[in-house]
Design a protein around this nucleic acid. Structure first.
Lengths: 211, 211
DNA sequence: CAATTACCGACCAGGGTGGTCAATTCATGG
DNA sequence: CCATGAATTGACCACCCTGGTCGGTAATTG
């Protein structure tokens, strides 16, 4: 009898992904306590027995997903942005592209992250908090560390410009996600999305940066 | 036997509010289907029988809350903003104050609205959608109708400035809500909150408006 | 071929669901 | 003071879903 996780990590990629995505979706939409393993196996197209063959318990599955998500986001996202450029807007454009790539493979991942960052179930609280704070600190550092604020216009505080930029673009990102949320992955018009995004970036550059 | 709602609307104000807030919170955190009437009565400090003495069913309670929330938001919020001034930033500052006032009386109200705008339960879908779209249209018109875009700088598109402003401030609002979410109502430092907010508004005015 | 592993799904006890209703408390007016 | 009717209670209902088990079958391996 091998360790349980090895049963799972040895699975074929598409099956593994479908289980991961089903579980992420369920946890993301209902939260830890109310998420149903029955719904997960139904959505993933496997049996109940199989799921508990891979993971000893719901809790173990959840924590595995956390670790997995954090690993993916760190490798595919944070590490690709970090310190690549001091220009906040360039960094953010890069972030948007990378986010799209992750989204294509694991659509529910960001919803999952959003959910677990407000999760309050005592059964997993401690272990989750620990993982989250590590993750947040790393993300914050990669996205906002080492910023070249000398690019900003100098007649207003740089930190305010930074905050407003992040907030506006975060909201823009969420709206885009919602808009494309219904469509199938193939039929998303990435071209149009990018030019639209570029226009907003251009406005921000004009208004917030030195001319 | 009077009509059920009249039983409820005739209640003493504090009792009524505590029931409303308990129900709003429960629906906001779990969504329609998973919200538990048992939890509501526990949080409101009334008996199960009392709740179903006021409302014939969970569904009727939910729809009552929708109507109630829409009435409050329309009267206390939208109508106080509408067309008061063409300046987007002035309008938004006013909106923030009003939001605070509503929040003091019904803390979970905005969470409830956020939740029902993504609610998908088929049992209430039609009736909810109808109410929501009416509400959205009215809110949009009051907040963004009749804007004086000639105040904006003219070298970038006015609609982009409007969008970015709204997004940034919306996010700012959410963060403030989260920050004060833990504190009790009395010990919130409104002074500090307002000056902080004013600083961000000032930056936006400097960067996005004609000088 | 046997042996081992991967997987299935009916099944379990326990707990939560929206809603009911006989019984009790309360308020009011005579 | 009681009589009356309304407000309120909470134990109770049948039902559904829960996380997890386990005897069995199918597939893989040596």
């Amino acid at each position: 009898m091998v360790k349980m996780h090895e049963n799972f990590t040895g699975l074929k990629e598409d099956k593994r992904d479908s289980i991961i995505n089903a579980a992420l979706t369920e946890f993301a939409t209902k939260g830890y306590e109310l998420a149903s393993t029955n719904e997960m196996v139904k959505a993933a197209g496997i049996s109940k027995g199989a799921l508990f063959h891979y993971f000893a318990s719901k809790k173990e599955l959840f924590l595995f997903l956390c670790d997995y998500v954090f690993k993916v986001v760190s490798q595919e996202f944070y590490e690709q942005i970090g310190h690549c450029d001091g220009d906040l807007l360039i960094r953010y454009r890069r972030a948007a592209m990378l986010k799209g790539a992750v989204y294509q493979r694991y659509p529910p991942m960001f919803e999952f992250i959003k959910r677990i960052s407000v999760e309050k179930s005592p059964k997993i609280e401690d272990q989750l908090k620990e993982r989250l704070s590590k993750m947040m600190a790393y993300g914050y550092q990669c996205l906002l560390g080492n910023l070249d604020t000398s690019l900003f216009r100098q007649d207003v505080p740089a930190d305010k410009i930074r905050d407003l930029t992040i907030w506006a673009l975060e909201n823009y990102g969420n709206r885009s996600m919602e808009l494309i949320g219904d469509q199938r992955v193939e039929e998303i018009d990435l071209e149009a999305l990018n030019t639209d995004f570029a226009q907003y970036l251009d406005v921000l550059r004009r208004c917030f940066y030195k001319q």
